[in-house]
Design a binder for these strands. Structure first.
Lengths: 183, 183
DNA sequence: TATCTCATGTAAGTGGTTACATGATTGC
DNA sequence: GCAATCATGTAACCACTTACATGAGATA
């Protein structure tokens, strides 16, 4: 039930339409949260019914009306309560590791190929992160930036560090698989 | 729909009861996959109905009968097909990072406290991983170990590297938050 | 006396994915 | 002419969590 808190957090920073939030999930927000547009619209509907957000309808020609959402006092209250309760540690399921467990059936060569495929994706991620860092944060005084920007720096740093750790692990995996030490 | 493939992978290595698999999820398997006992029993039921696994009932006094599951040829076939199709890259949702985004409302001090709380958990994880590595893998020739053990080494290494990256990030976060550069 | 381990399940609810639906405007 | 962008939604399905249920034997 954390999506609602993501939405409240975003709306606490600035008003937004569902469409805009969804766009954010494909960009900056997407580095640490994913949600489909169906989820976002549904949750915004619920939050409205429960009085945690409200919206101003903006008429448009030849398009569905925009709904510009705002957090309400009640919503801000709920957000503060959530922020104050410690998050449960995340457990995550990693398909690639399962495939490694099944590696005997697949064979070292095909396993390596799969890992290399993911390496490509991770390398792209890292370049994206580094480009954002170079453009927005390097050679700048953090206190000069808006609070919203500053708060995004820690997630970005986390992305950089964990992606590097992943690539580092992939190097090691490659060595162990190529030497036939594992499969 | 990947839980079924985890179950097939485990059963491909050796026969097991649902109970035993659940126990594994709390131990070695748990480092990269989590599933509740309800999920496991239900999925084993489905796999049986679909003919991908079968089981031998073992009568017991004063306890529910054990069901010792085996993978079938059809199941092995399904597993091979799944192994051969590349996994989609994982996207994951990180509550802690959302809280950082909402950090303005919470304040740097409470944010730090929350991060320290998670640090404790991650440090425990790392010690566990290192203990397992020391006991089972360090100062050993990998090829001497059973295939099953060897295959578990890569996930373990991944756990070690990513947990270290996490702790490393937490150090940085602490510095930035303490200096008041972020919040 | 209480908790843990063994060993299996059902039921209800929430969260998330996939597919379907509409329709004008802008850029290649 | 075709795809992408803007802007919203419904419906069906699947995954996962939480709570409830049983009951003996072993250990503290």
């Amino acid at each position: 039930m954390a999506l609602r808190h993501v939405l409240l957090t975003v709306l606490q920073q600035h008003e937004a339409t569902g469409y805009e939030i969804i766009r954010d999930f494909d960009h900056a927000l997407g580095f640490f949260w994913h949600a489909s547009h169906q989820q976002v619209y549904r949750e915004l509907g619920r939050l409205t019914r429960e009085g945690l957000v409200d919206y101003q309808a903006i008429e448009q020609r030849s398009r569905p009306d925009k709904k510009r959402y705002r957090i309400t006092d009640q919503g801000r209250q709920a957000l503060i309560e959530w922020l104050a309760t410690p998050a449960a540690p995340r457990r995550f399921n990693d398909e690639l590791l399962v495939k490694i467990l099944g590696g005997e059936l697949l064979g070292a060569e095909r396993l390596l190929k799969e890992i290399e495929h993911h390496r490509g994706i991770q390398e792209d991620r890292l370049s994206t992160f580094l480009a954002i860092e170079a453009e927005h944060y390097r050679n700048r005084n953090l206190p000069e930036l808006s609070m919203e920007y500053r708060l995004l720096y820690l997630p970005l740093r986390k992305g950089i560090k964990t992606t590097r750790a992943w690539l580092d692990w992939a190097d090691e995996a490659r060595t162990l698989l190529k030497d036939g030490k594992i499969v």
